[in-house]
Design a protein around this nucleic acid. Sequence first.
RNA 1: GGCCCUAUAGAUCAAUGGUGAGAUCAUCAGACUUUCAAUCUGAAGAUUCCGGUUCAACUCCGGAUAGGGCUACCA
Length: 454
Amino acid sequence: MSEVRVRFAPSPTGFFHIGSARTALFNWLYARHTGGKFILRVEDTDKQRNTEEALRVLLEGMRWLGLDWDEGPDVGGDCGPYFQSERQPIYDEYLARLKDAGRTYEKEGAIWFKLAGERYTTYDEFKQAEVEKVKTQPVVIDDAVRGRVERSEEMDFVIVRKDGSPVFHFVNVVDDIAMGITHVIRGEDHLSNTSKHVELFQAFGATPPVFAHIPLILKQSGPGKMSKRDQGALIEEYAGRGFLPSAVRNYICLLGWSPKDDREKMDIGEIIERFDFPGINRGNARFDEQKLAALNAEYLRELEIGSFTFLVRPILAAKGVITEDEDEDYLQAVLKLAQPKARSLEDLPEYVDYFFQDDYPVDGKVAEKIAKKADPKSLVAEMLPVLEGLAAFDADSIKSALEGHAEAQGQKVFAYFPALRFAVSGQGGGPDLLPMLEVMGRERVLARLRRFIG
RNA sequence: GGCCCUAUAGAUCAAUGGUGAGAUCAUCAGACUUUCAAUCUGAAGAUUCCGGUUCAACUCCGGAUAGGGCUACCA
């Protein structure tokens, strides 16, 4: 029994598209699931777009998602080189084989692949010109995802351009043969190309690999597949937006694959164990930013507070909420309050702003709402001496002091809470009030209360 | 136009030809004896349409409709 060998063959374009990432991920999962090899092959034949920078974005994106390759750039392997731009001698050799077999001809300076079958002339789709078509044996693809698909290739096609460069269909097949690829897992957009590829495999006398065409990722709303301009399309943007690679990876797994038992949040080990072709869907998947965000929030909440702080610090600094040298203990104490309620790291700066800034914004609607019940200034004025007299400024002490005062006034303690919160934060919501006051500390709280009273 | 793929709540996925069609996100409501985007509980919400096969169809077959893809000397 031969080992599974799968590959991801991206073209460095300067960005790492979520669709490519998903293809890479599925190939990687299949290799890890079967104990096979995952090969990274860079299709860098387009010299215009291919730059150092473009390659870096790609490799960094792969690494960020935790997709390590067994053969390819940086790690090498027995079937190199792993850049198509360095494989010209191999393409020459394979082209010669095709030539010797009489399966090529030249026309208008380009080299064409000659299909096997009876030839006849007919008109093109608009009856504009005469074209030569070939009655071929239909290609039957036993697709691991979609089942039996039958398609006939009926026109010869170019395999080497007149400038001498080989085209995608040709190099793709040659490399797959030369690298011993056993399973080709790729987007459904290649399904129609597969008949061309199978024709080539057969012309080389090679057994075609198992094909598995996975559904495409459609944009969140509107028609068509996800394009690089759609929100959430670029992997390299997720890190800066506070997404965790484990969450993004988990979400992308669910785009076109299902474990079939309603489980969604799974660690990668479990996914590897369960990932296989029967679980891959046939219908296209639609990208859902909200669902990704919800999953990310779940991952965020289970992070150790230290890791969470490490992750959030640069984000807060970038927004100017804190300075680079913000006190670690205070920052961590604040984040400990915010983490359980955090929905995304993008909104977090706004959520914790007032812990660090004295000129925080004041929510006008909340001001009105609070003022309706009682004058917040007089409530705060009542509380001020109570808090000033506190020996220890911790949640429990504050609580019993406030309760004692409220009771003496014949009030419920909650009558004071909204005004207090508003006075120290300008907000109507936020972390639990008592621990929040403790974390803010006596000085800050009292100063803000005094300022509030005016 | 030709060829190929797909079709269950607003979205993403489940359901050996026999269930009360299930889960998550989103939405709405209640709770957590302050707030709140977290948490808990609950509610609403779907088999695209028309035929056929069958004792029985979400499931199999055909058609329609809708969505997606390919149709390059791009990859």
